[in-house]
């Protein structure tokens, strides 16, 4: 009896496969009918699967997954049609203005970096030390302006212009830490300090080690 029903379901799935592969937009009624059919088949197969053992169970699980796949794919054309309607109403991003602002603010931050570095060099630091000191000072400035609540306002205007410079790295650390302050210093500030900056350090370090290893073996 079950065998017969199972064969019936397999037959229905094959028929529906043709419908799905044509990627046509179904009428509302037809869609509801198909979805209800799929629910019914899924429920049946799951019920058999729960009772079956060994090979039989695996076979039914495959069938169930096939039904689940069809459930997902059935609504794809409808989703695509809707999303193309929705897209028409999306207000345009102000790309040109954003890019110009990112360029200006990012450029100014780097320019300040250059001035700071020049001052350190004049103060007698060697090139590398001056660079490191500049980074440290910029990180301080990024952290400071985040703390007094200005960096997020700058970011609203500058976008990537204030994310990409190392001040943005400091902003990500302070903003994450500050936000969780009320949850205490260990599980709040301490744990969240590197929510955004952590991946940066992890992947940066990892890749630099790979580079070192390649360099070692290639040398």
């Amino acid at each position: 009896m079950i065998k017969l029903q199972e064969e019936e379901i397999r037959q229905k799935i094959r028929e529906r496969e043709g419908l799905i592969s044509r990627n046509v937009l179904l009428k509302e009624q037809e869609m509801t009918r198909q979805q209800e059919e799929l629910q019914k088949e899924h429920q049946k197969v799951l019920y058999w699967e729960a009772q079956a053992l060994g090979e039989e169970r695996k076979k039914l699980a495959d069938l169930r997954q096939e039904i689940e796949r069809q459930q997902q794919r059935l609504t794809k054309p409808q989703q695509i049609a809707y999303q193309s309607i929705a897209l028409k109403f999306v207000p345009p991003q102000t790309v040109v203005k954003n890019t110009i602002m990112a360029f200006l603010v990012g450029g100014l931050i780097c320019l300040s970096g250059q001035i700071i570095k020049n001052l350190f060099s004049q103060g007698g630091l060697a090139d590398k030390e001056a660079s490191a000191a500049t980074s440290a000072l910029l990180i301080f400035l990024g952290a400071f302006f985040t703390g007094i609540g200005y960096y997020d306002k700058l970011g609203k205007v500058a976008g990537a212009g204030s994310i990409v410079p190392i001040t943005g790295f400091a902003n990500s650390i302070v903003s994450s830490g500050l936000e969780s302050k009320k949850e205490g210093y260990i599980y709040g500030v301490g744990a969240h300090l590197f929510t955004i900056a952590g991946p940066v350090l992890a992947y940066g370090t990892m890749i630099s080690i790979l580079v070192g290893l390649i360099y070692y073996f290639a040398k």
Binding site: V90, P91, P92, Q93, T94, N98, T146, G149, Y151, D152, K153, L154, G155, K156, A158, G159, S162, I163, G168, N171, S172, V174, S175, S176, L178, E179, T195, I196
Partner: peptide
Amino acid sequence: ERQFRTPTELGDQRPMT
């Protein structure tokens, strides 16, 4: 904002949508 998106002090831009 805290729960669903990013820290409030993070300098990111909200899209027009």
